[in-house]
């Protein structure tokens, strides 16, 4: 017995250390231990706030603990590459935002070794998708997109906008607008969507694109004025605000949140997860939680989500290529 044990001890320790476990021959029932949903942003951010109700609803459906873990850093790249490189056993899922398609493109642009590639992940379901809203500081004169564009053409590079950071989602939305309208704006990046909002409220920049839940309280208070939205149709809570499409700008942009798994997750496990998520998003509790966050549910199952994601990723990749490498802070 002693010799037997010694023989097995070292390899066992090595396996422990390198996180390798022996595949048991007969596939066990999934799930039999807690599932982790990685939110690659800090608690309180959109990813975290969406992941929590998803986890809670999923826990009920799967009758198995589902915990949210925040793995933050490098604009989400840390958490996303963590899941992309984790074991495809269905126990490590990712709740990512639109920026999932931006980071590999930016890595490509800078000739960096990518933190992860999009092929490493497979979509499970789209949870929400909110169009960004274009707002201007209320003290600025522009009442319509037309007036704004005319002014921007007259004074190129004079009107400014804040964003959540270079190559961030809010920067992307504005890049699509400036490209489509053929205008030049001054970009002042901030460290996150919160500071970007503070900047427009303080009048340090003129315009901003951000999510409806963020801007609506300040629109109601009359501090900022919405001119248009990036959605295919108008936002329900802002019925008077036209879409850019209505105004003849063929642009569409959403800040979305979706659930992903590592690419080589087995089809059987994927099927279980997809069906559970489908039930979870229809649970009354989940709907109530999302209602409170003022985030409409936009559920899409894997195949449709893949199509949506492909289109979105292509659009973002084009925008990043247009922006190019910024040698100096953007002031085109």
């Amino acid at each position: 017995m002693g010799a037997y044990r010694r023989f097995y001890f070292l390899p066992a320790l090595l396996m422990l250390f390198f996180g390798v476990t022996v595949e048991s021959p007969g596939q066990e029932k999934y799930p039999d231990r807690p599932i982790t949903i990685v939110a690659p942003f800090p608690p309180g951010g959109v990813a975290d706030l969406t992941a929590r109700p998803v986890a809670a609803a999923l826990e009920k459906v799967m009758k198995n603990p589902v915990v949210v873990v925040n793995k933050t850093g490098a604009a989400g790249a840390v958490g996303m590459s963590f899941v992309a490189n984790s074991k495809p056993d269905g126990y490590n899922l990712l709740l990512a935002l639109s920026s999932i398609s931006i980071i590999p493109e930016a890595d490509k642009l800078f000739d960096r070794k990518p933190a992860y590639t999009m092929d490493q992940l497979i979509p499970i379901a789209l949870i929400s998708a909110d169009p960004t809203i274009f707002v201007v500081n209320a003290s600025r004169p522009w009442k319509t997109v037309k007036e704004f564009v005319a002014e921007a053409k007259r004074r190129p590079g004079a009107i400014s906008y804040s964003s959540s950071g270079v190559y961030g989602t809010l920067h992307m939305a504005m890049e699509m607008l400036t490209h489509s309208a053929g205008i030049n704006l001054k970009h002042v990046p901030y460290a996150g969507a919160g500071p970007a909002l503070t900047a427009i409220l303080g009048g340090h920049v003129d315009t901003l694109a951000s999510g409806p839940a963020v801007v609506i309280p300040h629109i109601k208070a009359g501090k900022i004025r919405p001119l248009a939205g990036w959605g295919a149709k108008r936002v329900a809570s802002l019925p008077d605000v036209p879409t850019f499409k209505e105004l003849g700008h063929d642009i569409e942009f959403y800040i979305w949140a979706g659930l992903f798994a590592p690419r080589s997750t087995s089809p059987a496990v994927m099927k279980t997860i997809r069906e559970s998520v489908k039930q979870a998003v229809n649970a009354a509790e989940f709907k109530a939680a999302m209602e409170k966050l003022q985030t409409p549910i936009a559920y899409l199952d894997a195949p449709e989500f893949q199509k949506f994601w492909d289109k979105d990723a292509k659009m973002l990749a084009d925008a990043i290529k247009r922006i190019g490498k910024l040698e100096i802070p953007e002031a085109k």
Binding site: G44, D48, A221
Partner: peptide, 14 residues
């Protein structure tokens, strides 16, 4: 603010 939003309170000037 995130904690408030979870409870359906939109923190704003009002």
């Amino acid at each position: 603010i995130a904690a408030m939003m979870v409870h359906g309170i939109s923190p704003g000037p009002l």
